[in-house]
Design a protein around this nucleic acid. Structure first.
Length: 907
RNA sequence: GCGAGGGUAGCCAAGCCCGGAAACGGCGGCGGACUCAAGAUCCGCUCCUGUAGAGGUCCAAGGGUUCAAAUCCCUUCCCUCGCACCA
């Protein structure tokens, strides 16, 4: 960037300015919130994982919440805006291994580094409420809550299948298993699936509550709500038992019980217990199951399966249908067993065709459907829609060919709609209504060191025994480098005695999933130092829910679902009162893309380091650029031009304030222009406020830029009125301050503001009366003048005369607006009739129009044009004369209409 | 396949909920002011036609409702995201 000498003189040095204000805020306790505050505005960003690296995603996330917090504070709200550290987790262990240190030291260093960066960015947090999940002061409450959940019957020990790396001797999360070959991400060893006992929180008990409440979460994005609905995966259906050979009754789950008469085979998942029983007698089945269990996802065709030689009895028809074991039936969906209806299910159809099984239609389109039953050929493709039952094809049906249908066996079902049949068949075939969820219980056991120890003890005699509350927290032992779980290797720590019987016992060596930490951290901020409970129930009940939660979409399901679950449980065990949902409004900020529009990544080499931007341009430039670039939820590409533009703007407005402070601006007493500027100031405040409220910071900032540009033009055009000019700058500074807080303070200091702008009052936000109408009048008039000058080709206009329409024309429009029949209505008006033919002609003109824009009365139009005349003078270098209809005389004024002054341009 | 969100001028992108001006902004491009010049800044223009503020054609495509549609309704096409051998 090149700067002129003058600009350099007027520029601020962010490296000097920013730390100074950060210190000033700190000393003035600007961001502290008192424990006594009632129902403060709770503004929260998802706390970061402590990687030590601040990236642009963080900067964007925290710039948004910081701007909102500052905005609300200036409006006089008490604001809770805390920050903490999601500091447990596997990466810390890996980093410790790589650097020959331990997870704790490494994590603490990362936290210090990140905290410094947050301060440098000017983010205003109440650091007295800082929460660090890897501190015993925090995680002891994970343990305490685990026990309360257990008391409430929400903790279970179940077997679960896990990814196990035989070389590292540890469990891996799904995302740590790489590629189709399923290799360990660290040592490239193929992983095993191992069934292990695990601790679970039974979130499935809350499946319905979690699902239902989504409908009322109006402040959440639709896609997140939809993702949670999908995840919970509610299915309403029914279960019915089929007798399978000598193996007894097998329950199936179906959502299409109406099609039961069309079942022509029965299918078991390879993992179904009955399939395993059959395999013991049948080698072919055993082989298939083995194959299915060791195959990769796509190895087996959808039609793969094996006939077991067994038959199942269809309770609807009494028929015996063949039993298959098929891979397309999933063990953990429904009951892992189903009856197949090839005529009405695509996969069953494909399977049946391949295995040459009968396809029997039992549903046809209902009369109101726009499909002709004749066009449905289930031999070709399954008909999967609802319809009416057509049991003519069922064996034993008494329905004659072509008739409207008589019932199979019992006659009473024929013609039922699918919906009615589903309901009816439940009782008819001894089934039961059943609701299935895709949601699984939350397995929280991790065979890792860097997490919250699960507060349980295994005693030979007493089984699983809780660690008594008074012995909490169970603290982590010293970290040891080992291939497996360091807790397992910590012999001294592991050996203990049973709290119940006193015998020798061992501690649980699993730690908790780190999502446990983040499922309630937003409550700990309320009372971070409390020593006898995780949080102060009264205060939390008052301060929660979080009013504004901002974070990445990657947490749409996991974290946000767990937090909702925990919040509901806390309510049910009386630790929270009247808070059923943790986050009222949720925003998922979009990605910051690299300059080329691709995702920033090391491999693409298009990453932009926040640290570098802060050093080169300062935090405010980065903040302003990010907020101007796009609305929070949209992605945008990093742009050096945009950064540059934000930087120049900040320098520019600073320069103006500095000149003002230095007394270098000549002031005068010009009145009309000041009036114009004054109205623009008010309108800008109103617009920016509304945009802040609706999270469209880019629009708010655009308004601020326009105001500053206007002030600059004002100064160039005339000797401005000092009070108006200063008020304009003060307003711009305040509107800018939430986004560019350091520059805001610099401006404030030069504008003689008392105290800190961070604590100043937000500008009153009331647009002037009829602002929009006036603005439209002025803009239209300016455009018309341009249009004329351009089309006519006037080289050098000398005088531009604007004449406002006479009062009677305004009245004609008023009458016309109300009238059905314009011309008669106008001519019947005594007053208007006085204007004779002119009134009639004008009425005729209006009669052809469908609508009438709002317009100002003549004297207000006159005043508005007088205020705006300077803009036209400046643009065309001509004298501008604004006249009333009377002053202008008939020849000109007759061309004017309300909202559209007559224009005369003299060369 | 199911679900959600979209398709607006060369590009990015507002407006759509609550129908009423060729449609806010920005970038890029063009012209002008300032300057020895460039940059920065400022003022315009940027769908087509037009010597007094005009006319024409426009918001993925097609239909409909309405005095009036980018906006409401229907159909089709395309994009992005989420879920999915889900019984």
């Amino acid at each position: 960037m090149t700067t002129t000498g003058e600009e350099r003189e007027r520029a601020f040095d962010h490296g000097e300015v920013e730390p100074r204000w950060q210190q000033a805020w700190d000393e003035a306790d600007v961001f502290r919130i008192d424990d006594d505050a009632t129902d403060p505005e709770y503004v929260l960003a998802m706390f970061p994982y402590t990687s030590g690296q601040l990236h642009m995603g963080h900067v964007r996330n925290y710039t948004i919440t910081d701007a909102v917090a500052r905005f609300e504070r200036m409006r006089g709200e008490d604001v809770l805006h805390p920050m903490g550290w999601d500091s447990f987790g596997l990466p810390a262990e890996n980093a410790a291994e790589e650097r020959d240190t331990n997870p704790r030291d490494w994590t603490m260093q990362c936290i210090d580094r990140m905290r410094d960066q947050f301060v440098e960015m000017g983010f205003g947090y109440d650091w007295e409420r800082e929460v660090t999940t890897c501190e015993p002061d925090y995680y002891r409450w994970n343990q305490w809550l685990f026990k309360r959940f257990r008391e409430a019957g929400l903790v279970e020990r179940q077997a679960a299948e896990l990814n196990w790396c035989p070389s590292c001797e540890t469990v891996l999360a799904d995302e740590q298993v790489e590629g189709d070959d399923e290799l360990c991400w660290r040592c490239d060893t193929p992983i095993d699936h191992r069934e292990m006992d695990q601790w679970f929180l039974t979130i499935t008990d809350y499946a319905e509550a979690l699902l239902e409440a989504l409908d009322d979460l109006d402040g959440w994005p639709n896609n997140v709500r939809e993702m949670q609905r999908n995840w919970i995966g509610k299915q309403e259906g029914a279960s019915v038992a089929f007798e399978v050979g000598e193996y007894g009754a097998v329950d199936i789950f179906t959502t299409r019980l109406d099609t039961i008469h069309g079942a022509t085979y029965f299918s078991l998942a390879p993992g179904h217990p009955v399939a395993r029983e059959i395999a013991e007698e049948n080698d072919e089945v055993a082989e298939y199951i083995h194959e299915a269990e060791h195959a990769d996802e796509d190895d087996l065709d959808v039609t793969s399966g094996v006939f077991t030689g067994e038959y199942a009895t269809n309770p609807a028809t009494g028929e015996a249908i063949p039993v298959y074991v098929a891979d397309y039936v999933l063990t953990d969906v429904g009951t892992g067993a189903l009856y197949a209806v090839p005529a009405h299910d695509d996969r069953d159809h494909e399977f049946a065709t391949h295995h040459d099984i009968e396809i029997r239609q039992v549903v046809e389109p209902a009369p109101e459907a726009d499909v002709d039953p004749e066009d449905v050929d289930v031999q070709e493709a399954a008909y999967t829609e609802d319809g009416v039952l057509d049991l003519s094809a069922v064996e034993g049906s008494s329905r004659p060919e072509g008739s409207d249908g008589v019932l199979v066996n019992s006659g009473e079902f024929d013609g039922l709609t699918s919906e009615a049949a589903r309901d009816r068949f439940v009782s008819e075939f001894d089934g039961e209504h059943r609701t299935e969820y895709n949601l699984r219980d939350w397995g929280i056991s991790r065979q890792r060191y860097w997490g919250t120890p699960i507060p349980m003890i295994h005693c030979e005699d007493c089984g699983h025994v809780e660690v008594p509350d008074e012995d909490l927290p169970v603290e982590l032992p010293e970290f040891v480098h080992t291939t497996g779980n360091p807790l397992d290797a910590a012999e001294e720590w592991k050996q203990t005695s049973c709290p119940d019987c006193g015998a020798d016992a061992v501690r649980e060596t699993d730690t908790m999933d780190t999502f446990v930490d983040s499922s309630w951290y937003f409550l700990r901020y309320v009372s971070p130092d409390l020593t006898d409970a995780p949080f102060d129930t009264d205060r939390a009940s008052d301060w929660l829910p979080v009013d504004r939660y901002v974070g990445g979409i990657e947490h749409a399901v996991m974290h946000l679902l767990y937090a909702r679950f925990v919040t509901k449980v806390l309510g049910d065990i009386d630790l929270l009162e009247g808070v059923r949902e943790p986050f009222t409004n949720l925003t998922n900020q979009g990605m910051v893309l690299g300059e080329n529009g691709n995702k920033m990544s090391k491999s693409k080499g298009n990453g932009v380091s926040p640290q570098r931007i802060i050093e080169e341009y300062g935090a405010d430039t980065a903040r302003l650029f990010i907020m101007e670039a796009a609305q929070p939820e949209k992605e945008f590409a990093w742009s050096p031009e945009g950064v540059q533009s934000a930087h120049s703007f900040l320098q520019n407005i600073y320069g103006l304030a500095d000149e003002l402070a230095a007394g270098e601006i000549e002031f005068g007493s010009e009145g009309d222009i000041a009036g114009y500027v004054a109205r623009e100031i008010d309108a800008t405040a109103a617009r920016a406020t509304a945009e802040y409220e609706t999270f469209r910071f880019n629009h708010a900032l655009q308004a601020v830029r326009e105001l500053v540009a206007l002030l600059r033009r004002y100064r160039e055009a005339t000797e401005p009125d000092d009070a108006t000019f200063e008020r304009g700058l003060v307003t711009a500074a305040k509107l800018l301050a939430p986004v560019a807080p350091h520059v805001g303070e610099e401006l404030w200091e030069r504008l003689d503001g008392a105290g800190l702008i961070a604590e100043a009052d937000w500008p009153a936000a009331e647009a002037p009366a009829d602002y929009d109408t006036e603005r439209r009048l002025v803009e239209n008039t300016r455009e018309d003048v341009r249009d004329i000058v351009d089309t006519v080709g006037i080289e050098d206009p000398q005088t531009i005369t604007l004449a406002v329409a006479p009062a009677w024309k305004h009245e004609v429009v008023d009458v016309a607006r109300e009238a059905d029949n314009v011309v008669p209505a106008v001519m019947q008006n005594e007053e208007l009739r006085r204007y004779g033919e002119a009134a009639a002609d004008f009425a005729k003109t209006l009669a052809g129009r469908a609508t009438f824009d709002e317009h100002l009365p003549p004297e207000r139009e006159l005043a508005a044009l007088e205020r705006a005349a300077w803009l036209i003078e400046r643009e065309f270098g001509a004298e501008v004369v604004v006249q009333s209809a009377e002053a202008a005389g008939d020849s000109l004024a007759s061309k004017a209409e309300p909202g559209r002054p007559a224009i005369d341009i003299a060369e």
